[in-house]
Design a protein around this nucleic acid. Structure first.
Length: 257
DNA sequence: ATGGTGGCTGTGCCA
């Protein structure tokens, strides 16, 4: 059983690629970020024809997240589209329970630059997000938290650490929030299974980032201990990043026994 | 080289 996350940077543009990738990889659950569409603009029948159902939390132009899941998983329960205790008009989270498995899919704030207001919004957002995850991991032994975290956890996750030193995506306060999640008992699944250097998930469109492998590892899958015990692999699927008109992110895939 | 590209909007914003 595979669980995956992918920032598609517009579902409208990337939907054919998402459908191709679903057919190729057959994940049980796929978390998408940056739909950039409202729910009403998304035609679920394309997914249904392939045996997938959708849970959508869309937004016009920016943000927007979804969970795409195999219909044989049955009806999900406890669907949540907002972080409790955070008044946030931006559509950045969607969570649901599939049988015994709780899944949270998130598009963390980018933050732009550490001297910007958006960076403060990011830290406030991460505070509420981490508080919520502490409650969730206490309630759900089988929990997966995945998505675009917009945090490179360590210098090994950055193609040029000097260039990104103390910059947004890499600053100590952001990394502190990521480490806070690990301290709660989550495992960084990709980091656990792959010791490869340069295991990047995002490459800037600008400056030939992908061609030069100027990437960062900012998309993650975090597993609770009971889920991690069932995990047999976790990897970045770089193939779609090389397709025509790609997203700037590659999918990350967790395999469970 | 303080740039570059891409998506969506609306003549800029966001990543």
């Amino acid at each position: 059983m595979k669980i995956a996350t992918w920032n598609v940077n517009s579902l409208n543009v990337r939907k054919p690629q998402v459908l191709s990738w679903l057919a190729q990889q057959q994940p049980a659950i796929l978390g998408l970020q940056e739909l950039k569409q409202v729910n009403e603009a998304i035609d679920n029948s394309d997914f249904a024809a392939m045996g997938y159902q959708t849970l959508l939390n869309g937004q016009k132009t920016y943000n927007g997240v979804a969970l795409i899941y195999q219909e044989e998983l049955g009806e999900p329960s406890d669907v949540v589209c907002d972080i409790p205790a955070l008044d946030d008009p931006q559509r950045r989270v969607i969570a649901a329970t599939f049988g015994e498995l709780r899944v949270i899919n998130a598009y963390v704030v980018n933050g732009e630059a550490i001297d910007s207001e958006k960076y403060q919004y990011k830290l406030n957002w991460l505070e509420a997000f981490s508080n919520w995850l502490a409650l969730e991991i206490a309630q759900h032994p089988n929990l997966v938290v995945m998505g675009d975290f917009n945090i490179a956890p360590s210098d090994a996750d950055v193609f040029d650490p000097e260039r990104f030193k103390d910059a947004v995506l890499c600053s100590p306060p952001e990394r502190d929030y990521f480490n806070r999640l690990l301290a709660m008992g989550f495992t960084d699944a990709l980091n656990c299974f792959s010791n490869e250097e340069n295991n990047f998930t995002w490459w800037d469109y600008r400056g030939g980032g992908y061609r030069r492998n100027h990437g960062l590892r900012i998309d993650h899958i975090l597993t609770s201990p009971a889920v991690q015990a069932k995990a047999t692999a976790c990897h970045v699927d770089k193939e779609p990043r090389g397709w025509e008109r790609p997203s700037d992110h590659a999918p990350v895939v967790l395999t469970l026994a």
